[in-house]
Simulated scan of single mutants.
Amino acid sequence: MIKRTVMSIAAFSAASMMAFSVSAAEVDGPEVNWNLSVWGKERAFTSSIETIRDYVAEKTDGKFNIKIHYGEALSKSRENLDGIKLGAFQMAALCTAYHPAKNPTLSGLDLPFLPFPNLRVQSTVHEAYYQHPAVAKDMARWDAMLLMSSLLPQYEFTGVGDPPLTLEDWKGMRVRALGGIGEAMTKIGAVPTTVPAPEVYTSLERGTIEAASFPFTYAHVAYRLTDIGKWHTANMSPGANHCPVVVNIPAYEALTPEYQQLLNDAKAPAYEALYEAYEAADAKNFPLMKEKGIQAITYSDEELAKFREVGAKPVWDEWIAKMNSDGYPGTELFELIMTTSKQATN
């Protein structure tokens, strides 16, 4: 249930403001108090919303306050979009794969094996996608405006047993793979299963599954897969959950133009904070994985092309056909992803 209890806005600690310390407001305006709903605790994933919070507070000398409520304190993660619609809070993080029927156009960013070589290309594609009129209209049904992406890194697999050095080696393998990644692995011949994240370690240890996909590298370490894994894929990049930050449209429209501009201006440092947080996790985790003797599997361009032809293209084609039949511009949206990615990569 969405918690409707009115939350008091706590004063910002000095530590939270160190990154943006000034002596006076750069933007004058009224006092505004917003609440933001997110699950879990402070981590790399939340570095963007924390940067936005600090940025707007600093620029207004504390008059524009965004209170982040962690741990599903305001809403269950799968109900954040409903909470935005109800106006229970003004901002929220959400993952579109949790409820694809509620945000059909955005399910395009959950497709497997999209050509995102790094997070900067991924953010460029996401931002271009958000600007498409069909996407904006889709989200407006929920009184939601897409502010930015939380940029989950591409997933990779950690596993036990014989390492899958080719596409054929995956056939019959029991893997933990969700959403679009699970669909792709089915096409490849693996046997996907849905295992809650806290149970993945035990499942891998007991042999219930032979490999598990998580955002790479921080989630593999966080869930201790590196304690029992014998190998990991290094460049398979089968996909990633799409998790945007959204804003309640009536609340946004009630802001002064200057405050609206501040939210937009905050996106650049927020994206930089995400890049840095994930890069810091990799810098720490790669040596750890090497130290543990976990074999890194790097596929050739030719082998990756096979993965996309067998595991990705059928899923892409099915998504495009369904979107078109449901009255959405599936072909146009998919081409937007591919074209923007190519342009951003070159």
Rank of each mutant, 00 (worst) to 15 (best):
V315F: 10
G108Q: 10
A212V: 05
Y129H: 04
R53Q: 09
G182D: 04
H232P: 07
K67T: 13
F12M: 08
T51P: 06
P257A: 00
F307M: 05
L167Q: 04
E127F: 14
I209F: 12
E302P: 02
K187V: 08
F89E: 10
A277W: 02
I297F: 04
Y201G: 08
P250M: 01
E272K: 04
E258D: 11
N35W: 05
A44C: 09
I228D: 05
G207T: 04
N65K: 12
F20S: 06
A144P: 03
K187C: 14
E199N: 15
E31N: 11
I66H: 15
F216S: 10
W34M: 03
A92M: 03
V315G: 09
E302Y: 03
D82Y: 09
F307G: 02
V27F: 06
F116D: 15
K171I: 06
A14G: 09
W39L: 05
A24F: 06
E309T: 09
A283F: 04
Y252Q: 09
G327Y: 02
F113W: 04
F216Q: 08
G62W: 02
A211E: 04
P30Y: 05
K171Y: 08
M289W: 12
K267H: 08
A270T: 05
C95P: 07
E31F: 03
Y155K: 13
V200I: 13
P244E: 03
G180R: 08
Q90C: 04
A254T: 12
